[in-house]
Write a protein that binds this DNA or RNA. Structure first.
Lengths: 212, 212
DNA sequence: CTTGCCATGTGAATTTTTTAACATGGCTCT
DNA sequence: AGAGCCATGTTAAAAAATTCACATGGCAAG
């Protein structure tokens, strides 16, 4: 099929498929049908076939999908079969935690530079990385081939951080700060809200307690 | 309106509205129109009015929404205008980070007990909380009025953790482990995947680099 | 008290996404 | 080499979500 517009929900599900497929691989499964995979992911099997069809034909009719091959194909489709250099702005609790969380690196998202405007923090080292003033972002970004920005500032600093990133020619932003930011329309922004899921859960549980 | 079935996407947006409204309040805005709020949230204004209509009538025609009042109404609608006691299973890097992250508490999600099956960790204290073997979950849950479970184990321990939680009569689960879990259908599960957003961003950036 | 204004709340139209159904084509066994 | 099997890829139908458009009703001004 190879369509142009791909639903955002599809991307989210592809992330799920990767997770499940990697666990399957670890357990020694090397071929799987859309039906079985669908079951493991709690989705419809047509959904899986359609999601994959956006990007190409990865399966073998009458057989199923080769697990390792499918993982590779999905990763390639998403553009995560390579390294993405990132800049992190805001070395507070969360920023520090992310710097220490080496899973990011394992997945190909390498934090190449850390920024903070707090004079007490500038110059200090963390995980082998010197904390630098955001005014140097532009230079560092070019020097180190940084393409993505990660905002972990407080809410009221998020916009300023975004401005620095945009000015530095960054291509995309993940915003962990609890605030919306304005950036030029060609720069995608992903908002991460830690409470989102908790709210959703609380809502479902509350709802469930009524319909009995 | 007060409908029965509410789209999951609506819940996600309500979380965004809360975030934006709280920032507005801090800046001293006390009335806002759906149009303006829509702008700040990057959604359609009808979307906002419809999302809210699922739960009631919170605005004043010809005027708009009173910010503080709307925040309260949304929180009540979601069931987050109260305290939710939680149990955390898996005191590794992530689990420890969550225990220290007191924002959870500020939002009403209080971690009342921490569990881990590692004998080296059992008995130790963390943030004023004793780490306990998961076999004691059932007792503790009843004793401490715990309703929600938070799984922060490695992938291969997630199912076991889920079983403990279900057995303890927990009402809902947030799963941070990179694995799917099986639980009875009446227990909602929210999966948190840290890479989801990064994948999505990488994809959008990759895509953007083609259509020029 | 009445009139005009304006943003909400809602029903209808559109768009998007999901599900179902089936034709296609590769693999295996004879 | 040919036939049958079976899960994919795809087209069509169904369901769901979003957007549009406007009637409704509260507030303020005269």
């Amino acid at each position: 099929m190879k369509s142009e517009h791909i639903p955002k929900a599809t991307i989210g599900r592809l992330a799920v498929y990767i997770q499940v497929l990697e666990n399957l691989l670890r357990d020694g499964t090397d071929v799987i049908s859309s039906e079985k995979l669908a079951n493991a992911c709690s989705v419809n099997s047509s959904q899986i076939r359609k999601d994959l069809a956006y990007f190409g034909e990865f399966g073998v009719r009458g057989v199923g999908y080769y697990v390792q091959e499918l993982i590779t194909s999905i990763k390639h489709s998403l553009g995560i079969d390579r390294v993405w250099n990132c800049a992190l702005i805001g070395v507070g609790n969360l920023g520090t935690a992310l710097l220490r969380h080496h899973d990011f690196e394992r997945r190909g998202f390498v934090i190449k530079a850390a920024f903070d405007c707090d004079p007490d923090k500038i110059g200090k080292e963390l995980e082998g990385m010197e904390i630098v003033c955001p005014t140097h972002l532009k230079n560092q970004a070019k020097e180190r081939g940084i393409e993505l920005g990660i905002i972990t500032t407080p809410a009221d600093r998020a916009q300023r951080a975004a401005n620095h990133l945009v000015d530095a020619g960054i291509k995309g932003i993940v915003n962990y700060a609890p605030a919306r930011i304005n950036v030029p329309p060609h720069i995608p922004v992903e908002y991460v809200d830690f409470f989102d899921h908790l709210y959703s859960l609380a809502f479902q549980v509350t709802l469930g307690s009524f319909e009995e």
